[in-house]
Simulated scan of single mutants.
Amino acid sequence: MTARPRHPAAFLLALALLLAAGCSTADPAPAAIAPVPHAARPVADPGLPGMAPVLDPHNVYAASGANMLSDVARTAKPLVYVPHTRSGDVWVIDPATFAVVAKYPLGAGELQHVVPSWDMKTLYASDDTRHKLTPFDPTTGRPGTPIPVTDPYNLYFTPDGRSAISVAEQRKELVFYDPHTWAVQDVLPTPDCAGIDHADFTADGRTAVFTCEFAGRVAVVDVATHKLLRTIDMPKRNMRMGPQDIKLAPDGSVFYIADSDQNGLWVLDGAATKVERTIPTGGGAHGLYLSRDATRLYVTNRHEGSVSVLDAYTGAPVTKWRIPGGGSPDMGNVTADGTQLWLSGRYDHAVYVLSTVDGHLIHKIAVGNGPHGLCVWPQPGRYSLGHTGITR
């Protein structure tokens, strides 16, 4: 700390200069005290070149708060898109009335997820068996001409928006594309990552972690170079339905990894080097979603028909919501205003709408066969990292 001037007048002058410069003579407060408002200055290190700066090191989702819609997202028609793995169609639901307003047959393939593009201008229905993405215009809710893409079980975008990543589960590959032309940029083989499917990125955007569902491990990838850095085995390698969804804690300190056969979460350190512990949640832990203020983590327990609510920073259990009559809650997201959690009922031809206030079932909607990566649109945030709407 700078020594204070001995003369009172000199001290007062120095203090005035410090305050005018926006500084303080007090010791800096710990980074974890309170979230910085959305309008606060970005942190000094913007992370991956080309990535939008992190606004708050205590909450990387600070730009994705309730109703913080970008100008592009505001043009979208509020709709919920439900892809089906077995009936090969996307159903569209009006969230205001809970009515199915459209059904789009897209072939005989397996439609896995509806994924918002990095710039939020397009939604893509991924079909891994017919190797295509079907773009949807979010301003109309209608599909366009399919795009040939290799085995897109899932789809992500690098935080700088320079690449789309097709998670080619069957091929054990990550295929990097130009997100505008869909020309192949690179192919990264991941031979030790059977069942590669879900991903998230470190707070600085420099590293991606992909789960390997059928290998009981994760693959850690350098985003800029498209290189595999390492694989990390889970302490117990569940290789039938093992690591699936993954979510970065708001402060970037850890990754939460849902493991269906573990009936809970693995906790990976934020640098993606080691597994620190496990958190029991419920039978068939599968999907991970954050509340709009990023204080709560919702874990879908697909085999027991429940949702565990955890503290998003510590992983401590808060409560558990059970779907009346049971169910198979899988993938989905929280509404833009944060009041509802929409989830596909993977094995029950249903979509569930839960209150995020107390977890009660607001509505259950009958849909097609095998509803999977449901997308609630629009979503708050500056850009999308993919999946069913990971935004920052």
Rank of each mutant, 00 (worst) to 15 (best):
I246S: 02
G242T: 12
I279K: 08
R240F: 10
T278P: 09
T278D: 14
A272M: 08
P235A: 09
A285V: 05
I246T: 11
V275I: 15
P280M: 13
T295D: 13
W266R: 10
T295V: 11
D245C: 03
G264S: 13
Q244E: 14
G264C: 12
R237H: 03
I279G: 04
L248K: 11
T273G: 14
R302D: 01
R292Y: 06
E276W: 04
L265Q: 08
K236F: 07
A285T: 14
V267W: 07
R296Q: 15
L290N: 04
T300R: 00
A258W: 06
S253H: 10
S260H: 12
R302G: 00
V275C: 02
M241V: 14
G284H: 05
W266P: 01
R237F: 06
N238Q: 14
G287E: 02
M234E: 15
G270M: 11
R237K: 14
D245M: 13
V275H: 06
R237Y: 08
I279A: 05
A258L: 07
G284Q: 10
T278A: 14
K274P: 01
R292Q: 13
N263K: 12
G282W: 06
D269W: 00
T300M: 06
V267L: 03
Q244G: 02
M241K: 11
V267G: 11
Y256K: 12
T273N: 14
M239Y: 03
A258R: 10
Y289H: 07
G287K: 00
Y289G: 01
Q262T: 01
N301Q: 10
F255Y: 15
D259R: 02
G252D: 10
P243D: 04
G252E: 07
G242C: 09
G270T: 11
P235F: 10
P235D: 11
Y289T: 04
T278F: 12
K274Y: 00
D269E: 08
Q244L: 11
G264K: 06
R277L: 06
L248Y: 07
Y298H: 02
V299W: 05
L297C: 12
R296Y: 00
